[in-house]
Design a binder for these strands. Sequence first.
DNA 1: CTTGCAACAAACCGAGCGGTTGGTTATTAT
DNA 2: ATAATAACCAACCGCTCGGTTTGTTGCAAG
Lengths: 194, 194
Amino acid sequence: MSDAEQTRQKILDITADEIHHHGFQSTSLSTILNRCGISKGALYYHFSNKLELGYAVFEEVYVPMFLATWQPALSQDDPIEGLCDFFTNMCETMVCSEAVCGCPLNNLCEEMANVDEGFRLRILTMQQKLNGLIVDALSTIEHDLRPNLQLDHVAYFIVASFNGATSLSKSSRNKEIFQYVIDELCGYIRNLKK
Amino acid sequence: MSDAEQTRQKILDITADEIHHHGFQSTSLSTILNRCGISKGALYYHFSNKLELGYAVFEEVYVPMFLATWQPALSQDDPIEGLCDFFTNMCETMVCSEAVCGCPLNNLCEEMANVDEGFRLRILTMQQKLNGLIVDALSTIEHDLRPNLQLDHVAYFIVASFNGATSLSKSSRNKEIFQYVIDELCGYIRNLKK
DNA sequence: CTTGCAACAAACCGAGCGGTTGGTTATTAT
DNA sequence: ATAATAACCAACCGCTCGGTTTGTTGCAAG
């Protein structure tokens, strides 16, 4: 990787971390520059402005990270147990500091969907993609599921509950509540089967 | 009501609206002053700083509004149907602009829980109070519910799903997805019964 | 009548923000 | 050797923000 690509990647990684911790609007360019050890000229050589930097972080960091997180769970032979294992495992491995920061995608949705159309559309695309993945996974075992289920509604409900779980655990600063919600969510998911 | 109380209440109401639409940090004092038609001196006569104004809005506007919204649903003879009616009715009466703004409490939780301890504790208190209300309501019909339910977990799950529903509908800018999630949520709630 | 305080108004301040500008260095092509 | 370009630095700019200060008005008590 060339020096320039390294610099660019470093900016992306550090900015992704800053956005995850403080949100997009509260993320300061000077903080990024300090952490990267570069000057503002360097940043503006690689990105035309703060918004474009945010878009790049979303597309080049968050989206791949997001897919890499959910895909394995949904590719299992039994996506029901795949999801439950995924959620449960997340509860166990998660430390409190992570619980407090929440899901990057959900955070950006809450913060930026009403503020910037570019962010909104990118978030929407990612959400629809995730929903499609869940629907596809559930479709593969449709014969094991209760009849008359509307799989896309179910998928949205799963994601909504998961997002809500991260939201609730922010105020309590521990992962107990997260665990409670996830337990109930797993119960709901397993109840999808006949 | 005296002039001073009127001014104070006007500040609270308009600030509540601004926070609901733009979040606390992005809410500008000068916007509030313009909408109120007052000067900065007037505002700082009634509130010592922006943070205290935010706290006052939370306690004097959001908390009462919040309780007034949820209480009736939970005071029904059958809180299960009370909640379902409450959710369904919210879907029907809600216009898209409201759907986009989300729940004030959840918004503040997402934005401020990690930023300011004063907000975090106030939000936490309100969430625990709501959870207690739901648990109490469900307890009154415990004999009709499935055995071995952990009512506090159930209550958190209901709130989490509801919050997640508002979050999801922000990116799509319509209430369709909200409705899907609420439908599934009502299914889950009704399934709590034997 | 005037003194005093409640209830504001208006101008101002420093800090931090995103963004721009004019250079500087290192590498590569000719 | 020289010209050009990629990659970066440091200083600066205008703007908006929350907050402060000083000044004004109206009413009410003595």
